[in-house]
Design a protein around this nucleic acid. Structure first.
Lengths: 129, 129
DNA sequence: TCTTGACCTTCCAGTGACTGGAGGCTTTAT
DNA sequence: ATAAAGCCTCCAGTCACTGGAAGGTCAAGA
């Protein structure tokens, strides 16, 4: 299957698929004319990658997960470890964003938002309390 | 004041300060020997930038906020608009992360995490329901 | 005076995960 | 025969820095 069809089947772009090949996540065959030729296997891998990326796993995590995926002797604990570490990262990001949200919401709510220059948002950024 | 002291006073790194100069966010004077010479004004701007970045504003937002900061005839609504747009982005990010979190938490909770290969996380990523 | 070491400078490369585009083949349809 | 679509590679750009090399400057101590 050519790259266009692989892209349609995986909801990845052709660019992304070529990039994944470049960094060694998939290794499609090549036809005589140089065109990539994706097997069903390749498409499975790409879909796996697409899902993992959607869950926010880094490409490097994806590489490990993909390797565990094709390892029949894997220990589920290895997978779980990766997922739990990722969860911790997500938690941290949410906490950080929530802090920003709180501060900003407060500032925005106290700003008149009119034509005059007085602005608690600017004041806060300027360090004036 | 030399860059090291500017860095200490603003909690930015020297590298970051040089970068901010490179992209035109601050324009410190230069001494005869080529060293940057930061005024108190410059330090104020840098602190302003540091705070805005901590709230997650993009460098481009920061540029606009800084310009509004030094504009005595600014309208607070211009500031508020930028802040509100940023809040919307933060909300979206949090929602996206929360979705990932939900899915991942569920998957992690159903995975035994032992030496055996059966793994609901891998199964989900592989599209097996 | 010499030297050491801290501090400053510029410039280049790398990060993550793509994305856009140029320039050039091959295939398909008219 | 020709045009359009589709494929290829390679290079540059994104964002906001960060690391490091190579070299100039300055103050203090031997």
């Amino acid at each position: 299957m050519k790259i266009r069809d692989a892209a349609l089947k995986t909801e990845l772009t052709e660019k992304t698929i070529r990039y994944y090949e470049e960094i060694g996540l998939v290794v499609p065959e090549r036809r005589e004319n140089g065109y990539r030729d994706f097997s069903e296997q390749d498409v499975h891998s790409l879909r796996f990658l697409a899902r993992a990326r959607k869950l926010g796993f880094s490409v490097d995590d994806c590489r490990q997960l993909l390797s565990l995926y094709s390892d029949r002797k894997r220990a589920s604990k290895d997978v779980k470890n990766i997922a739990e570490a990722h969860l911790v990262e997500i938690d941290m990001k949410i906490k950080e964003l929530s802090k920003m949200q709180d501060t900003l919401r407060h500032l925005v709510s106290t700003c008149q938002g009119n034509e005059r220059p007085d602005c608690p948002i600017i004041n806060d950024l300027a360090g004036k309390s």
